[in-house]
Amino acid sequence: MFVRKFATALTLVLATASVASAQSPTRIQQFNAWGAYSYQATGGKVCYVLSIPKEKAPSSVDHGDIFFLVSQRPGQNISYEPQAMMGYPLKENSKVNVVVDGRTFVMFTKGNSAWVENAAEEPALVAAMKSGKDMSVQATSRRGTGTTYSYSLSGISAALKQIEGCK
């Protein structure tokens, strides 16, 4: 099941990164709830860590494949960029809230993805994830359905350490 979800995530990551000539990713290692991956893209090597939610709410709707990832694209000077990816279109101009140990980070939405609204807060979100235990992501679908996802942060520090030398 994880392999199928990973294949879907890879397709979404490649589409989001607008990578026309990317190679298939290599799974570097799994660290509890987080996996570390890399692939070669036109602009250079891309590395990322990815996890799937341990819980989805409401349980009565089809969420599709949901992921949270943190990517590094050294060739584009992008370091540790958090991104939420949903299996459905998000409500236009809505916000996604990421809560780590009571601290909220706001993300803007486009299509089925969300990124930290204030890029200067990206390092703080990553630091909170590394020191935190659990994370929740709250979003609203284009249809207006409020959704919540719970993630374990077990393994995030080791996974991020694994990709810190991405070049």
Rank of each mutant, 00 (worst) to 15 (best):
D62C: 06
H63F: 10
H63P: 04
H63G: 10
G64F: 04
G64S: 10
D65E: 13
D65W: 12
F67L: 04
F67R: 02
F68N: 01
F68A: 08
L69Y: 05
V70K: 02
V70L: 10
R73F: 06
P74M: 09
P74D: 02
P74K: 04
P74N: 06
G75V: 06
Q76I: 02
N77V: 11
I78L: 12
I78W: 08
S79T: 14
S79R: 14
E81K: 12
E81S: 15
P82T: 04
P82G: 01
A84G: 10
A84V: 14
M86S: 10
G87S: 07
G87C: 07
Y88H: 14
Y88I: 05
P89D: 11
P89K: 10
P89F: 04
L90Q: 06
K91N: 08
K91T: 11
K91G: 05
K91W: 09
K91A: 12
E92C: 08
S94V: 11
K95N: 07
V96K: 01
V96G: 03
V96R: 00
N97E: 15
V98K: 01
V98M: 04
V98E: 00
V99W: 01
V99N: 14
V100Y: 03
D101A: 14
R103D: 12
T104P: 04
T104E: 13
F105C: 06
M107P: 04
F108Q: 10
F108K: 11
T109V: 15
T109P: 00
T109H: 03
T109F: 03
G111C: 10
N112M: 07
N112D: 15
N112K: 08
N112H: 08
S113C: 12
A114N: 01
A114E: 02
V116R: 00
V116D: 00
V116E: 00
N118A: 12
N118Q: 11
N118M: 10
A119C: 03
A120N: 13
A120G: 08
E121L: 14
E122I: 06
P123L: 02
A124R: 05
L125M: 06
L125C: 05
L125R: 02
V126I: 08
V126R: 00
V126Y: 01
A127Q: 13
A127R: 12
A128Y: 02
A128N: 03
M129G: 10
K130Y: 02
S131V: 05
D134N: 08
D134I: 00
D134W: 04
M135P: 02
M135T: 04
M135F: 03
S136K: 11
V137M: 09
V137I: 15
V137E: 03
Q138Y: 11
Q138S: 13
A139V: 15
A139S: 14
A139T: 15
T140M: 14
T140Q: 14
T140D: 04
S141C: 10
S141I: 11
R142K: 12
R143L: 13
R143T: 15
G144A: 12
G144D: 15
G144R: 11
G146H: 11
G146L: 13
G146S: 15
T147A: 13
T147K: 07
T147R: 09
T147S: 12
T147C: 10
Y149C: 02
S150W: 05
S150Y: 09
S150M: 06
S150F: 09
Y151W: 04
S152A: 05
S152E: 02
S152T: 08
L153E: 00
G155H: 05
S157H: 05
S157C: 09
A158K: 13
A158Y: 11
A159G: 08
A159D: 01
